[in-house]
Design a binder for these strands. Structure first.
Length: 686
DNA sequence: GTGGGCTGTCATTAG
DNA sequence: GCCTAATGACAGCCC
C-alpha cells in the first residue's frame, strides 16, 4: 500500500574541474562586470533563492496588513450591527450612536455593549467559551461602549490570554493563529458549519473543538457573549467552514487562498510517502509525509457526504503543472513561492518539477524582455491592480521621447504645431516646392528633374533656355536624391494642402502667367546683358563642367565677364544645392514622423498584448490556487483528519507525483526520513 | 508694422 | 589646388 519515493538531490553539482572552469571563465569576463553566477549554476540558483525569500517576506508583510485591515473592518461592522440590534442609530452629523426615539433597550445599560442578536451576520460568531465570557463580562461592564472599538492588536492578546487551558492542545496541533497571524474571524458555529465538511471526521481534538463550539453556543444563548472575547478558531477549521458554497465574500476567499498557500518554512521536498488510500498518510507527529501519487484522493469516510465539488479530473489525475488552458504566454507569477516555501532552499528534483518549470518560465520571460511586467508584485496584489500600475508606469516611460504628447495622431504631435511641419512648408508659401506646370506640388511623386521654383524654369523671355525643365545631364542639377541608407526617399512629399487651400504657387504662377523674375537672377541676367555675355543662364548654371569649360574656351571673354559667369554658376549651383539640402531635411523630418507613428502603433499593440497576458496570468493563478486548495482540503491523515495547511504543503516531483510534505522539517530530518522510507520500500519490494 | 515662412546667397567644410 | 556638394547662417521677399 505504502510506496516511498527516493529523495532526489541536485544532480548537477559541479565537480572540482567544473569549479576551476567556472573560476577561469569568470575571471576572464570579470572586467566586463560579469558576476560569477553567470558561470556557476548553483551560485545563480542561490541568488535566485535569496531573491525569492526576500519577495516572500514582503508578501507576508503585505498579507498581514491586508488581513489586519479586513479584521478591523469586520470588527467595525460588527459593532455597528450590535448598535443597530440594540435599537441605536448613528447620528448623521456627529457619528455617535444614539438610542432610537430617544430610548434605549431597557435590558442593557448604556455603558455595556449590546448583546449580539441571534440572527446576526454569519460571520459574527454567536458563541464564546465560558471563561472567556466571564472575563469579558467583568471587563465589559466596566468599560464604555466606545472601548469596543479598540483595535484588533489590542483585542487579540486578551483573547489569547483568556484561552481555555484545554484549547492549548488545539493550538499546538492546529497552529492556532495568534494575533499577528490574523485570519478572517469566522467561527464554526453549528448552524453555519457545512454538513458535509470534512471536519465531520473529527479527531479527539476536533471533537473537543466541536464541544467547545457548542459551549460557545450555549453561552451565547444565555446572552453572555461578547464578540471580542470569542476564541480564535484553528485556521483550518475556519477554511473548512467557509467551504466553497458558503457565505464567503471574494475577499475572504482570497484570504483563504493566501492562508492555504502560506509557504513552509523549510524545504522538505523529497520526503515522500505514498498515500494510495485514505488513512494511509503518516501523521505529522511522525514527521512523515505522504505522497499523493497521481492523486489518490481519500474517499469520504463512512457516512460523510462531501459536497466539495471535486471535479473528476481532479480526483483522478492531478498534476501540479500549471494549467495551460487559456494561457498561451509565459507567466511571471511564481507558483512555487505561493505554494512551497521551501522550494527555493532545499533540494529539488531536477527536470520537470514545478520549480524548474517556473524557473524556465521566468527565464523565458526575461529573455523576451517582459521583465518589466513585474508579476511578482502582481501576484500579491488584487487582480489587475498591479498590472494597471505597471501600465501607467509604462505609459509614463514611453512618453519621454514623445515630447509629452498623449494621444492624437503623430502628425499632430509635433510637426503640425511647429514650424517644421511639412504642411506648413507648403502652406506658408513654399514657392519653390511646386512644379508650376500643373500647379501641383510634385515632391517625390516620381523620378523627376528637380524643379524648385525659383526654379530654373523661368525663361520669361523665351530665349533664356530651351531646356524648359532645367534638365541637365550634369551631376549637380539633376536632382534625384536617393540616399541608399534610408528609405525616406520613397515617401510622398507632395505635402497635400489643407482642405480649401489653394496652392500659393498656383495662384501666383499659373500656366499662362509665368513667374516673374526678381532678385539676384534678374540682376544676373541684366548683368549678363550689360556685359554682353553670349551665354544664357541655363548654359552657365546647368552645363556640366566639361561643357562649361568648353563654352568658356570657345568664347573670348573678358575677365569681368568670366567672373560674372563663374559667380552666376556658383550661385546657381549653390541654390540648387540649398534646395536639395532643404528637401533632404524635410525628408528626414517626415521619415522620423513615420517612424514615430509606427513605433506608437507597435507600442499600443504590445500594450494590448501585455494586458492580455496579465489577464491570462491572473486566471491561471486563480485556477491553480483553487485546484491546490481543493486537493489539499480533500486529504486526510490516518485518523481521517484534514491536514493543517500551516504545517503541510503539496509539492510535485519531476515525475508528476504530488507529495504532501511537512513544512517544519529540517534537511537532516528529511534525510533520516528518506532513509526510513527507502528502507520500508525495500522491505515491501522484498 | 510685425512675425513667420520661403528662398537665395555666402561662407565653410569635406570629399 | 580646384571643383563640387552639403550645410549653417543670414538677408530679402512675401503673406
Amino acid at each position: 500500500m505504502m510506496e516511498t519515493q527516493p529523495v532526489r538531490l541536485h544532480g548537477n553539482n559541479p565537480v572540482n574541474g567544473d569549479l576551476d572552469l567556472i573560476d577561469v571563465l569568470w575571471r576572464q569576463d570579470i572586467d566586463l562586470g560579469v558576476g560569477k553566477e553567470m558561470f556557476d549554476v548553483n551560485l545563480r540558483r542561490e541568488l535566485e533563492r535569496e531573491r525569492e525569500i526576500e519577495l516572500q517576506k514582503e508578501r507576508q508583510k503585505q498579507k498581514d496588513r491586508e488581513l489586519l485591515q479586513a479584521k478591523l473592518e469586520e470588527q467595525r461592522r460588527r459593532h455597528e450591527q450590535q448598535w443597530m440590534a440594540e435599537n441605536f442609530m448613528r447620528d448623521g452629523e456627529t457619528g455617535e450612536w444614539v438610542p432610537m426615539n430617544g430610548r434605549r433597550a431597557p435590558s442593557q445599560p448604556l455603558a455595556s455593549p449590546p448583546a449580539v442578536p441571534q440572527n446576526m451576520s454569519p460571520q459574527v460568531p454567536n458563541v464564546a467559551p465560558p471563561n472567556v465570557t466571564n472575563m469579558g463580562q467583568q471587563s465589559m461592564n466596566q468599560t464604555s461602549q466606545f472601548q469596543n472599538y479598540q483595535s484588533y492588536e489590542t483585542g487579540m492578546p486578551m483573547m489569547n490570554s483568556s484561552m481555555p487551558q484545554h484549547l492549548s492542545v488545539l493550538e499546538n496541533d492546529y497552529h492556532i493563529p495568534t494575533s499577528n497571524q490574523s485570519y478572517p474571524p469566522q467561527l464554526a458555529s453549528p448552524s453555519h458549519q457545512p454538513i458535509t465538511s470534512p471536519l465531520h471526521h473529527m479527531s479527539p481534538e476536533q471533537s473537543h473543538l466541536q464541544n467547545y463550539t457548542y459551549n460557545q453556543t450555549q453561552q451565547q444563548s444565555q446572552g453572555n457573549y461578547h464578540p471580542q472575547e470569542r476564541m480564535p478558531q484553528p485556521r483550518y477549521a475556519t477554511q473548512e467552514n467557509r467551504g466553497y458554497g458558503g457565505n464567503t465574500s471574494l475577499e475572504e476567499t482570497w484570504m483563504d487562498l493566501v492562508n492555504i498557500l502560506e509557504l513552509p518554512s523549510n524545504d522538505s521536498a523529497g520526503m515522500v510517502n505514498n498515500m494510495n488510500g485514505p488513512g494511509r498518510m503518516m501523521t505529522p507527529q511522525n514527521h512523515s509525509n505522504a505522497l499523493i501519487q497521481n492523486v489518490t484522493m481519500p474517499t469520504p469516510i463512512n457516512n460523510t457526504v462531501n459536497t466539495n465539488s471535486f471535479e473528476p479530473q481532479t480526483r483522478s489525475n492531478f498534476t501540479s503543472a500549471p494549467p495551460s488552458e487559456g494561457c498561451s504566454s509565459p507567466l511571471e507569477w511564481n507558483p512555487t513561492s505561493m505554494l512551497f516555501n521551501g522550494s527555493s532552499t532545499g533540494p529539488e528534483p531536477s527536470g520537470g518539477n514545478l520549480t524548474t518549470q517556473v524557473d524556465d518560465i521566468l527565464s523565458n520571460i526575461i529573455d523576451e524582455g517582459l521583465d518589466d511586467l513585474n508579476i511578482t508584485e502582481m501576484a500579491l496584489e488584487d487582480a489587475g491592480l498591479g498590472s494597471m500600475q505597471m501600465l501607467d508606469d509604462a505609459s509614463s516611460e514611453s512618453g519621454i521621447s514623445m515630447g509629452g504628447s498623449s494621444g492624437g495622431s503623430p502628425s499632430q504631435d509635433h510637426f503640425s504645431e511647429g514650424a517644421m511641419s511639412p504642411y506648413d512648408g507648403m502652406e506658408g508659401g513654399a514657392r519653390g516646392g511646386g512644379d508650376f506646370g500643373d500647379g501641383t506640388p510634385d515632391f517625390g511623386k516620381r523620378p523627376r528633374k528637380y524643379n524648385f521654383n525659383g526654379g530654373f524654369n523661368y525663361n520669361e523671355n523665351g530665349a533664356e533656355s530651351s531646356q524648359s525643365n532645367y534638365s541637365s545631364s550634369s551631376n549637380d542639377t539633376d536632382f534625384q536624391y536617393r540616399p541608399s541608407s534610408t528609405n525616406h526617399i520613397r515617401h510622398n512629399h507632395s505635402y497635400p494642402l489643407q482642405p480649401g487651400q489653394e496652392p500659393r504657387e498656383f495662384k501666383k504662377y499659373s500656366i499662362t502667367d509665368k513667374p516673374k523674375q526678381k532678385g539676384p537672377h534678374c540682376r544676373d541676367k541684366k548683368r549678363l546683358e550689360d556685359l554682353k555675355v553670349p551665354l544664357s543662364m541655363d548654359q552657365i548654371v546647368e552645363s556640366p563642367v566639361e561643357e562649361f569649360n568648353e563654352i568658356l574656351t570657345h568664347h573670348k571673354l573678358s575677365e569681368s565677364q568670366l567672373q560674372l559667369i563663374r559667380d552666376i554658376r556658383r550661385r546657381g549651383k549653390n541654390k540648387v544645392a540649398a534646395q536639395n539640402c532643404r528637401k533632404r531635411k524635410m525628408d528626414v523630418i517626415v521619415t522620423l514622423e513615420d517612424e514615430m507613428t509606427q513605433l506608437k502603433e507597435s507600442r499600443e499593440k504590445l500594450m494590448a498584448e501585455r494586458q492580455m497576458i496579465d489577464k491570462q496570468t491572473r486566471d491561471m493563478k486563480d485556477k491553480y490556487s483553487a485546484l491546490y486548495r481543493e486537493i489539499f482540503l480533500s486529504l486526510r491523515d490516518e485518523h481521517g483528519r484534514p491536514y493543517d495547511p500551516a504545517q503541510f504543503s503539496l509539492q510535485q516531483s519531476s515525475d508528476g507525483n504530488v507529495f504532501l510534505v511537512p513544512k517544519n522539517v529540517t534537511s537532516e530530518e528529511q534525510l533520516e526520513m528518506n532513509k526510513k522510507i527507502k528502507e520500508e520500500r525495500d522491505k515491501d519490494s522484498h
